[in-house]
């Protein structure tokens, strides 16, 4: 008899606890972005396809469905760490099969060589190339994600990926990277290597 009572008591307890938990789940529900949105927010949005998916969102969906998190070279280790943190998975090193982490780049069209074929315009995932058929094309540098996708289709090979120059106001205080000059050498006014900037 007593064991029956025990089971009954436990069952009632479980029921009550379940009800409380269920109520709490509805009452105190925290609205959060769906997991795909959260993953997509962490990806760099270069839309480069180096992960093997046609853009960042498809890769986010793939990750949500269990794909590896280390296939994004533009995001690099920082993105992998964040994804690992979000998903509670192990942070792996970047999968070299998909490329390596590189400095930020931007596409530049050598405009006098452009034949106006519009192939790069079709390739650009973020519509950052301006131009029309048989007209010269140019890259809107601010919108370019550096994804590299326009380089391949160009029939005349006139697109360069140029490393983005760091401006003083976006310098990251890497004091150790400042080249140390010799005092004796610096007294000469030599600027021969400096590039001529455009005058108006």
């Amino acid at each position: 008899m007593s064991w029956l009572l025990g089971i009954l008591a436990l069952a009632v307890l479980a029921l009550v606890a379940g009800l409380i938990l269920g109520f709490a789940a509805i009452r105190f529900r925290v609205e959060s972005d769906p997991i795909v949105e959260q993953i997509d927010n962490l990806l760099p949005q270069t839309q480069c396809g180096q992960c093997g998916y046609p853009g960042c969102r498809p890769y986010a969906e793939a990750i949500a469905n269990g794909d590896e998190i280390n296939k994004c070279p533009p995001g690099g280790q920082a993105t992998i760490d964040k994804l690992a943190d979000l998903l509670g998975r192990e942070a792996k090193p970047l999968d070299a099969a998909h490329g390596e982490e590189d400095v930020k780049k931007v596409a530049v069209i050598r405009e006098d060589e452009c034949i106006g074929c519009t192939k790069c315009i079709q390739a650009c995932p973020v519509d950052a190339i301006l131009g029309a058929a048989r007209q010269m094309h140019t890259v809107i540098a601010d919108e370019c994600t550096g994804c590299d996708l326009c380089v391949e289709p160009c029939p005349v090979d006139c697109i360069d990926m140029v490393a983005v120059a760091v401006k003083p106001e976006r310098w990251k205080w890497n004091l150790d990277q400042i080249p140390i000059q010799d005092i004796t050498a610096s007294s000469e006014h030599s600027n021969s290597e400096d590039k001529q900037v455009q005058t108006q």
């Binding site: 949005q45 839309q47 969102r57 919108e143």
Partner: peptide, 17 residues
């Protein structure tokens, strides 16, 4: 800055799609 840029990139990508 990167976040803003990537947000813009996302919007442009989605707009293009």
């Amino acid at each position: 800055i990167e976040q803003q840029k990537s947000e813009i990139a996302r919007q442009r990508f989605e707009a293009r799609q």
